[in-house]
Simulated assay, not measured.
Amino acid sequence: MALLMAAGSEPQTDREREDLDAIAALKESAAIELKEQGNKYVKMGKKHYSDAIDCYSRAISQNSLSDSDQSVLFSNRAHVNLMLGNYRRAISDAEEAIKLCSTNVKAYYRAAKAAFLLELLMEAESFCNRGLEQFPSNEEVKQLSVQIDSRKKECEHHKTQLSKVVETAKELASAFKTRGLKLGRTMYQELTGVKKPILDKNGFLHWPVLLLYPETMSSDFIEEFCETDIFSAHLDLISFFYSYSTLPWDKENAYTREAIELYYQANTGVVLSKKKVLEYLLQGTVASHSECDYDDDKDEVDHTEIPSSSSSGKWIKVNEKKTLNDILKQSDYIIPAIPVFFVISKRSSLYKEFRAGNWSHP
């Protein structure tokens, strides 16, 4: 009997040959029936997709159909996996279908579709091209090919934008280093938003600058303060506007141009490493979630800058005749993402307390 024959051995008698033919016919019939049942399950909807996959898998395991029919089984299973979101399985099944029958256009389409949904655009394009070589007029594959080409262009555009943004951020980070500036963690972002410095075509830094009034913690915001500008020019402009509209909280009119002084707080804050500076500069951009290397020498780690000297936290008066860069490059100034300066009036009742270092942030 054929069932007792050793695996791989040839039939020796007519009875064995008849038995083998009968077994092959049963397997073929079972495979066809399983295929048809699988097709029915697909038509019944998503709840029955797992049943369809089971039927196709059992039909494939019969290994009794021609290569072209086996190819259809793999392609059908790829179709169900595609609809279930099992994209890698769909690609694997479609590839098996193509190996068995190089003219199975549905297999090319399903492999391309699954690869496209996985953002494997080069693979998706390859499957489409191979399918169109076999069937140049197939509309389904042609439309998918157009989609893939469009997506590739989008990705290239995004990649170009990403590269520009990262390069700009690196140039800024390099400008900070060249000037010896120490950038710290963001403070008062609720007042400034996501404003960041820019580097103009001539290589000059332009900073957004926050002015705080410790008397009431109200603020002024200078959108663009060039590093080569002196403070007095900006204070003159602010005071010019005050002359038309006094500060609502300045009941004693103490904040006149000749009475105001500008200060920064020395040696406070957290100095960021070059890598963290780059991450900060990329926040809110198309590259905000990108992993970007800082091409430089050994990068220092983050550390909290709280010196033990008596100057720690001390208020340092700004010389109005100095440029912004003159102040930012001071060894005791850690820039809290963007420069922050405190405006106090010599006529204010808070002045002596502030100068003595007895005032602190609310």
Rank of each mutant, 00 (worst) to 15 (best):
L281K: 03
S311Y: 04
L281D: 04
T256G: 11
K276C: 08
R257V: 08
S232N: 11
D302R: 02
D299P: 00
K329R: 15
F241L: 09
S232H: 10
V340S: 04
C292N: 10
V340Q: 05
W249V: 06
A259E: 12
Q265I: 13
I260T: 13
Y263N: 03
D295V: 12
E215R: 10
L324D: 05
K251F: 09
N253M: 09
K322G: 00
E291D: 13
T304I: 10
D297E: 15
V271M: 10
K274C: 09
F231G: 04
Y264P: 05
Q330T: 08
S288M: 12
E320H: 13
K314W: 00
S290G: 03
T216W: 02
S239G: 04
S239L: 03
S245I: 01
Y294N: 02
G313L: 05
E252S: 13
D236M: 09
E300H: 14
S288R: 12
P339H: 06
S290H: 12
L278H: 06
A337N: 06
L262C: 13
D229F: 08
E223F: 08
E300Y: 09
D326F: 07
S243M: 13
N267S: 12
L282E: 03
F231Q: 05
I338G: 02
E252H: 10
Y255G: 01
V301I: 07
E215L: 09
P336E: 08
L324H: 03
D299W: 01
F231V: 02
S245P: 00
D326G: 06
N319K: 12
L282G: 02
I335F: 03
Y242G: 01
L324S: 05
E224G: 03
S232P: 00
E224R: 11
I230K: 14
E279W: 00
N325K: 07
C226F: 02
I334A: 00
L328F: 07
P339R: 07
L278K: 02
S219E: 11
A233Q: 11
Y294P: 00
F240Y: 14
Y264I: 05
A287K: 06
C292A: 14
L278S: 06
N267R: 01
L278Y: 05
K298I: 13
Y263D: 05
V343I: 14
I316C: 14
D297G: 15
D236A: 12
N267K: 01
P248F: 11
T246P: 15
Y242M: 04
V318E: 07
D332Q: 02
Y263F: 15
S331Y: 02
S239Q: 12
E215G: 01
